[in-house]
Nucleic acid binder design. Structure first.
Lengths: 213, 213
DNA sequence: TACAGTTGCCTGAACGTTCAGACAAGGGAG
DNA sequence: CTCCCTTGTCTGAACGTTCAGGCAACTGTA
């Protein structure tokens, strides 16, 4: 029980960040009040400001914290797979909002859009967002490089360039899916991402290990 | 001068919408106050609520109004060109934030991101956004169809599908450019869009009529 | 033309609410 | 007791919305 206090303190910090992320995804960044976050934690509003110097700071930290959490979970998930083809397919599946029941990602995408809109007027947040975003595009490029080392992929252009293109495509399509666009279902998005990936990297789609219809 | 009164009324309505759009792009949707809009028009805050039943209604109308205005300007611009290749290249140029000094489009893209974040929690706005968005993807598909009729393009997949893919790619890349991502400059975005378009539609890039490094 | 009545545009102040942040006191562990 | 965590209350400011009224342009009548 020596660290009971400190541990509590640390837990509180994290607990507030997670509560903040939840509230932001539920109500939206603009509609998030300190009291909402406090209620989600079961504490008083005053405590929130005891741990974070201001509401603004808390919100920004919550956005990047949540994104970090999701990214690490994804990286862990992908590392279980050996085949680059499987990794790529899995990465796409994980990126499509609402496709996999266990990894809907709706929260994460909602947070990303909140980050974008805020980063438009907050250059420091834009810098942080770029770091997170580059890491995410990097993971695509790494899969491509891995596939080329193992011989699964050959030809195609610069891996980083593929990461940028495929990453942007996924961003753009995810927005449509999140908006419940009637012309872009999660399955449709998944198929389009795979097709473009195959075209960019230069592999055939038919003998894919997953992804049908 | 019979319609002097009505004309004034109509001008005011539009004037307020345009002022609202300006303020939203400057300060962001969340930070936009009725008084800011009133000041931009040089009128009193009360007048804003005289023309619009609530702040919320005004904001939503301003978002779609501004988008509509920009779309019509783009459509007019594209109609001047005959060649499908030129139209496609011009559409891409027009879509890249900050590429053309006369059509920076920074405002329009900022408004789009605001629409997205709000549409996440406002299904009726999401519906309106889908209509606007479909029209925009349609214009890509129409260019492809036009090129196939004239024989400029041949092969490639369904034109609507190309519109969805290219549209999503442009959305995703535009976000990076807007965030001042150091890895994605306007020129870089332009090149990537053209490359993917060439790949999807099936034409060679070299003899392009425009677009160079 | 002159005048009175009507209509619509616009103002500025006031109201009620909401919320971030400040503050001081409570309480439990060491 | 002492220190850190936590609470509940308070406040000052900001904001959306309302409203009574003023003003100017227009209409119809004589």
């Amino acid at each position: 029980m020596v660290r009971a206090r400190q541990k509590n303190g640390k837990d509180r910090h994290q607990e507030i960040l997670e509560a903040a992320a939840r509230v932001i995804t539920d109500r939206g960044l603009a509609e998030t009040r300190i009291q909402d976050i406090a209620e989600r934690c079961g504490v008083s509003p005053g405590l929130i400001l005891y741990y974070f110097e201001s509401k603004d700071r808390l919100l920004v930290e919550a956005l990047t914290y949540a994104n970090d959490k999701y990214y690490l979970a994804q990286a862990r998930d992908l590392r279980r797979l050996d085949s680059a083809r499987d990794q790529l397919s899995r990465l796409i599946d994980l990126s499509v909002p609402g496709l996999l029941p266990d990894f809907e990602r709706l929260e994460e995408w909602a947070l990303w859009i909140e980050i974008w809109v805020r980063a438009l007027r907050d250059p420091s947040l834009a810098k942080e967002a770029e770091v997170l975003d580059r890491r995410w595009r990097q993971s695509i490029a790494d899969i491509v490089r891995h596939g080329r080392r193992t011989g699964e992929f050959d030809g195609g252009e610069d891996a980083d360039e593929i990461g940028r293109k495929l990453g942007a495509l996924i961003d753009g399509l995810a927005i449509q899916v999140l908006m419940n666009d009637t012309q872009v279902s999660p399955e449709h998005m998944q198929r389009m991402c795979l097709e473009v990936a195959a075209s960019l990297i230069g592999f055939e789609l038919e003998p894919a290990t997953s992804a049908s219809t």
